[in-house]
């Protein structure tokens, strides 16, 4: 998995590419926890192929953190990842665009 970070004013975009699983989720978590000068977070999943529960837990924590600030948006989600959001109820929790 690779993460590309783009800051635009107070909005931080993380482009996540590859697989978000047990081994890579801690890297995303670390990157999100390291964000300092942004109120809102955009997760661009256009190149995310796979997500497991380990990845979802990181999203849930990030969602909670940014809910207190400017919010978190997840965008460009492919069908396979969207299916996982659907069956786990994340579709109703996350702001998916």
């Amino acid at each position: 998995m690779t993460i590309n970070q783009i800051q635009n004013g107070t909005e931080m975009t993380l482009q996540v590419e590859g697989r978000l699983d047990t081994t890579t989720a801690p890297d995303l978590e670390k990157q999100i926890n390291g964000i300092e000068n942004a109120d809102s977070l955009v997760l661009d999943f256009s190149k995310l192929d796979y997500i497991s529960s380990a990845g979802l837990r990181v999203l849930l924590a990030a969602h909670k953190t940014f809910a207190k600030k400017g919010g978190m948006i997840v965008k460009n989600v492919n069908e396979i990842v969207l299916d996982i959001f659907d069956v786990t109820g994340f579709k109703d929790i996350l702001n998916i665009q």
Binding site: S52, S53, L56, R57, D83, I84, V87, T88, G89
Partner: peptide, 9 residues
């Protein structure tokens, strides 16, 4: 619960 939902699906 998250893991279980994934597996059941």
């Amino acid at each position: 619960e998250i893991s279980r939902s994934i597996i059941e699906n």
